[in-house]
Design a protein around this nucleic acid. Structure first.
Lengths: 146, 146
DNA sequence: GCAAAGTTTAGGGTTTACCAAACATTTTTA
DNA sequence: TAAAAATGTTTGGTAAACCCTAAACTTTGC
């Protein structure tokens, strides 16, 4: 049993941002890029990356940047799954457009339980892409019936 | 234009708890009761009530307790509306039972925008009670069509 | 009117998130 | 290749939201 990971909302945003850079775009996430996209001082980014490194979610190298570890990738995927399932819900049920769905999903994704997300996933027939066509990662606990 | 109110999640929980005591049950919410239901030290409750008083959301009297102000009631109703609309969603869409719906709603109600809640409300035909039969307060911005 | 119950104050503590300024490193370019 | 520019880190702060214990104070109920 590995130690339980507790993520703050902000840390979660870093992980998903890094996942998209690293895995989906094959680009490095530098301090400056993170600072710009979160609109914070670079010093703040360094601090957060160090905290994520302590939690073994990223491998951090001074002056170079940080890469998600295996655990970091797992956590990022969990969050992206939640985010994207919520997008599906908002588009299908409420007829939101993809952009608005993303905005609203961002506000709550971190706080939704995996259970809730799985229930939504089942209701919509286990979709495999979100409204903007990105992959929805699967969860082993989310199967037909459950 | 009145000053914008910014509520922390915890403060929101206090307001809705107090609303239920004060308006729905006509009982006073004492420090001890709040401390017990939130499982914190009474000193912590005092502190939070004082903060809510500064924000003019409650009228606080030392050694007596606190009562929601008009503004406090408005805020509590907004939150209860969000909570109850979410309960409707979870019961109708996901077939959750009332208790589970309440639990999941509690985790995210504070973070959901009024817009999102209104869209859900419209989708379910402006329900006026939640699964446990409590009133769903209306929002003037939530009308047929909108 | 006094003791018990309830409440507040005083004084701390932790965590998350920020920032500016000084300093260190890396990269670019003249 | 050396110096300038860009990038990143450290240091030392700040602030807010929560939370606690212990001591002091107020209210209540007998």
């Amino acid at each position: 049993m590995s130690a339980k990971i507790s993520l703050t909302p902000k840390e979660g945003k870093y992980l998903t941002f890094m996942y998209r850079r690293q895995v989906e775009e094959d680009e490095r996430a530098t301090t400056t890029i993170l600072a710009k996209s979160f609109k914070v001082n670079p010093a703040t980014v360094t601090e957060t990356l160090q905290r994520l490194a302590e939690k073994k979610l990223v491998a951090y190298t001074r002056y170079y940047g940080a890469k998600l570890t295996e655990r970091g990738i797992v956590e990022a995927k969990k969050l992206l799954r939640k985010h994207r399932i919520l997008e599906v819900l908002f588009v299908k049920l409420l007829r939101y457009d993809a952009e608005k769905a993303c905005e609203e999903a961002s506000k709550i994704d971190h706080y939704c339980s995996a259970d809730l997300i799985n229930a939504i996933c089942r209701t919509y027939g286990h979709p495999d892409t979100c409204p903007c066509n990105k992959k929805i990662f699967s969860d082993s606990k989310c199967r037909r019936q459950a």
